[in-house]
Simulated assay, not measured.
Amino acid sequence: MPPIPGSGLAKGLAVTLRTMTKRTVTAQYPDVQPELPPRTRGVIGLFEENCTVCMLCARECPDWCIYIDSHKETVPPAAPGGRERSRNVLDRFAIDFALCMYCGICIEVCPFDALFWSPEFEYAETDIHELTHERDKLRDWMWTVPEPPALDPGSEEPKEFAAARKTADKLRAAEEAEAQRAAEEAEARQAAEAQQAAGAQRPVEDRGAEGRRAGEDRGAEGRRAAEDRGSEGRQADEDQGGEGRPGPGSDRGGQP
Rank of each mutant, 00 (worst) to 15 (best):
P5R: 01
Y67F: 13
G6R: 00
R92G: 01
D127K: 11
V53S: 11
E49G: 01
R23D: 12
Y102G: 03
D152K: 12
E156G: 05
H129Q: 14
Q255N: 10
R41D: 10
L46V: 00
W143P: 14
P153M: 09
L138A: 10
D127G: 04
R213V: 09
F121Y: 07
L56V: 03
E205P: 01
P149C: 04
R59P: 07
I128H: 02
S250M: 03
C106S: 07
P37K: 12
P158K: 13
D239K: 04
P80Q: 04
A192N: 13
V204L: 03
S86M: 08
S155F: 04
W64L: 15
F161L: 13
A183F: 11
E221C: 04
Q196D: 04
C65A: 05
A168D: 06
A182K: 10
D69K: 15
S118V: 01
A10V: 10
P149L: 08
T132W: 04
E175I: 07
T24L: 04
E187L: 02
Y102N: 11
H129N: 09
E205W: 07
A183T: 14
R189Y: 02
L56F: 07
V75Y: 00
I4G: 11
S70G: 12
W64E: 12
R224C: 03
E221K: 08
